[in-house]
């Protein structure tokens, strides 16, 4: 029976995804290589179609560019509204970070951003850098393939519980497990169009940043995301950060309307290559920095 159930569920997901492909095929030539940089805008209001039930599948673009100023709702732009509720340690960490962007940016030669050595960004920084992603679903999980550096993340939707945060990691069924780049993510459908996701167990503040401007995040963070399917074309992706080690209160980082893109797009991925970084610094970064 379990095998039959799985088969039916996989079939349903396949049909749902196939429908999406066909919807695009009706409007575009069948055999082509679409532009490798998804740039489709949202459909006009009169052309909006209803969202499919419990489906986030598709290729999604944000039109935000590389999010140089950091978190979308509270960019690092010097405005009072964007000042963050740092704890003393949080402020100390921010000041120790030499970012390439934001109000306290430094030239390329002076940065200590782990990104420029091609360290993984870690979660949730992938949400705050060049955001675009392809989302897949099956009966167990939602998988997100971020365009930047082709990095995977898995959200479990099969009813398992959110792990308990403990020092240096998480506890699952009474057993310790280590912190991870993407943490441990569990999703729950609040209704047929809204998936709420909790993530804990991310890497400590010495290893990862929250955004391009050097805002800190610690391994005590609890990240809540809401994926809300507004219509067939639009997925609203929200995120709230609760990190008592770095911030005195939770704050909302983003609420981004993602636009559905042609699923046949073979995306021009922005890979991080140490070879290319070195070549860039040699030809430009060092000289431009006055080094």
């Amino acid at each position: 029976m379990a095998v039959l159930y799985r088969g039916v569920m996989v079939g349903l997901v396949g049909v749902a995804f196939g429908f999406q492909l066909n919807a695009f095929a009706q409007n575009t030539p069948a055999q082509t290589w679409p532009d490798p940089v998804p740039n489709r805008q949202a459909a006009a209001v009169k052309d909006k179609k209803p969202a499919p039930r419990r489906s986030l599948a598709g290729l999604w673009g944000s039109r935000l560019g590389n999010q140089a100023k950091g978190t979308q709702l509270r960019p690092n732009d010097g405005s009072p509204a964007s000042e963050l509720p740092y704890t003393p340690l949080g402020r100390q960490m921010y000041q120790a970070h030499k970012a390439l962007e934001g109000e306290d940016a430094v030239p390329p030669a002076g940065t200590n951003d782990p990104r420029v050595t091609c360290e993984p960004l870690g979660f949730p920084r992938y949400n705050h850098y060049d955001l675009g992603a392809r989302i897949y679903q099956d009966e167990h999980s939602v998988s997100i393939l971020y365009n930047y550096d082709n990095r995977w993340r898995i959200i479990w939707t099969d009813g398992r519980s959110v792990p308990t945060l403990v020092d240096g990691g998480v506890e699952i069924d009474g057993q310790y497990r280590e912190s991870r780049w993407m943490g441990y993510s569990v999703g729950k459908w609040l209704d047929d169009y809204t998936l709420e996701v909790q993530t804990v167990g991310t890497l400590p503040e010495e290893r990862v940043w929250l955004d391009n401007t050097g805002r800190p995040i610690s391994d005590r963070a609890r990240i809540t995301e809401t994926f809300r399917r507004l219509d067939a074309d639009t997925l609203e992706w929200s995120e709230t950060l609760d990190d008592p080690k770095m911030y005195t209160q939770p704050w909302q980082t983003m609420k981004i309307p993602m636009i559905l893109q042609d699923p046949r797009t073979d995306v021009l991925t922005r890979y991080c290559s140490p070879y290319e970084i070195e070549a860039y610094n040699k030809a430009y970064g060092d000289g431009a920095s006055g080094k």
Partner: peptide, 8 residues
């Protein structure tokens, strides 16, 4: 690109 440039 004004206001949306990243050095790296």
């Amino acid at each position: 690109r004004r206001g949306n440039a990243a050095a790296q």
